[in-house]
Design a protein around this nucleic acid. Structure first.
Lengths: 340, 340
DNA sequence: CTGAAAGCGCTTACAG
DNA sequence: CTGAAAGCGCTTACAG
């Protein structure tokens, strides 16, 4: 029965060497003699020793921890990105601390607090809502924090970014609809003020303009990336005198909510209205009808973000790199030519 | 420009007091004099001080960190539970460290490593796959680790548990189908060996038996909780000579995959086959047709698990408590009377 | 109410 | 290849 965990001291005593030697045997085995190494290993086994990270971190002045700040843990979109992040961080010996900013108006506070010495070695920000000025202050008052922005971004921020080409994605979506013969194409937008919302809507408008098509402001249906807001947008669509024949939703989640609500009202997708989503979350392929959408490589976004952060921490990356991953149009069953 | 963060020492110097006093002023303000407190606060502000957690943790011999071990970060089912956990841990001053065991055969190793001193103060296990013997060893060789099992469980484990009454849930699902007039009810199961799979299937069989209905082993369709496995089960259903008129899927995810695949094959739910899921994940209300299912209070599961862990850590809970949260049948549009 | 001092468990120059 | 010693930045009895 071991009541208190063994320390390096205990191992040293059992092995008959100094704590310095035990430490070396464990972290740089090649630097101690064969025989010492064996003795230490045996002693470790005998004592059940395992390192105390708090002590190690204090001494090394690092934490081996990376914090990910995400807007909403309950959103499956982020889950897959976290998986990508974790898949590169874990092998690199880092722990992933995940914090849900959950619309906290204080998310920038939270962020700064996570940059405390002894807390985290770096940050991955998946929430673009952190006010620029706070970040700027931070940047001005101390060396640039090791942080990278993923998915969302902050205008004017000098931090490295990794995300998808949202403008192109939105254009692809709308061009697909135009190619099918649609001329009246509605837009279900993301939360107002959000960078993704802004750019995706801009892409929509740009595609219409390029095709010489007008965009009626009445086709702009507000949303917030949630299922419920997609359903609400469908409610608006149903109430329109002459609703658009197709709709581009700024997220798959909203698209799914939109389609289901239309279905409940007795309308058919794509017969009554074509729908394109954005993200290609896993369910997009398993909705009824399967969703045409713009794929974001979520796992890859997470992996690249993590690798970028590791590079920043290691000091071998230009801190302002911006990696743009490419999007792809996935055509499934929710889009068709408009009814003539 | 602050190049290195201020330490307690710096604050003490600026405030003209000892580090002990600064420490007290910060952690137990009521114990220092008004004037000292003010001086310290000013000095903290002036220096931009924030605590070094590694040092504090080392000294206090605790980490303020709780680790959650989950089988699959990419599964939305867990996201909401994590949210629940995080919502009670954060206010309590704990950090949530999330680790994806990701089918690692080594998950028990991982777990033990997270119980290292200096790493985490407690564990929330959402993965029932950790082999009993390893846990037993752990329990035998040291004081019971502060850990709680959530959702899944480990037979014979002495750890406190919080979960839903899965047997009752499965019975509710199948009884609903029987009440509708179904007599031939298929089962899409979870991963084999998984405790949830076993109990939900048992509940299904029990409900059939109670109603005096036979259960044909051919109706047992294998699955693993994934969308794809639900779709695969639909493939099997389509290939049957006399398929069941209804199916109970051990998870909503599989139910969604099942419904979508049937739809793609030109069949209708519920006309050709009624479908009941399990979990009531958010999309369940937004599938086409909306899914009849058994609701698990996910946020609450997370909250209760976190509170239980906190109680164990505080030492004021019988370590073997098992909280069973109740399930609820949610009837939506994927179930109907069988075609006569 | 406050300070001097010890110590949490490691790692790492510095000698040898 | 190894050890003695300092120190990472806190907190907390112990005195006063």
């Amino acid at each position: 029965m071991v009541f208190d965990k063994a320390s390096l001291q205990d191992v040293a005593r059992v092995a008959g060497v100094s704590t310095a030697t035990v430490s070396r045997a464990l972290s740089k085995p090649e630097v101690v003699s064969e025989i010492t190494r064996k003795a230490v290993i045996d002693a470790v086994r005998a004592t059940g020793y395992s390192v105390n990270h708090a002590a190690r971190n204090l001494r090394r002045r690092r934490t081996d921890c990376i914090v990910a700040l995400i807007p909403n843990l309950a959103n499956p979109f982020f889950a897959q990105i976290l998986f990508g992040i974790s898949s590169v961080l874990a092998p690199a010996g880092y722990n992933l601390l995940i914090s849900d900013t959950q619309g906290s108006p204080d998310s920038e506070r939270l962020m700064m607090s996570y940059l405390d010495r002894g807390r985290a070695d770096g940050l991955i920000l998946l929430d673009g809502l952190i006010p620029t000025d706070h970040l700027d202050d931070a940047v001005r008052s101390r060396p640039l924090p090791p942080a990278v922005l993923a998915c969302e971004w902050i205008d004017g921020s000098p931090l490295p970014q990794v995300r998808v080409d949202n403008l192109t994605g939105a254009k692809l979506a709308v061009e697909h609809l135009i190619g099918l013969g649609h001329r009246r194409i509605g837009h279900v937008g993301g939360p107002s003020g959000n960078v993704l919302s802004i750019v995706r809507e801009a892409g929509h408008r740009a595609a219409m303009t390029s095709a010489g098509l007008p965009f009626d402001e009445a086709w702009l249906l507000p949303g917030d990336f949630s299922l419920a807001s997609g359903a609400a947008a469908a409610g608006r669509w149903l109430g329109m005198d002459r609703p658009p024949t197709a709709v581009f939703c700024a997220s798959d989640t909203m698209a799914a909510g939109f389609v289901a609500a239309l279905h409940r009202a007795g309308r058919d997708v794509p017969a009554d209205c074509s729908v394109v989503g954005f993200d290609d979350i896993e369910v997009a392929a398993h909705t009824v009808p399967a969703l045409t959408t713009i794929r974001q490589p979520r796992t890859e976004i997470g992996q690249v973000a993590a690798r970028t952060l590791l590079a920043v921490i290691a000091g071998d990356t230009p801190v302002s790199a911006c990696t743009l991953l490419s999007v792809e149009l996935i055509v499934r069953d929710s889009t068709a030519a408009p009814r003539s």
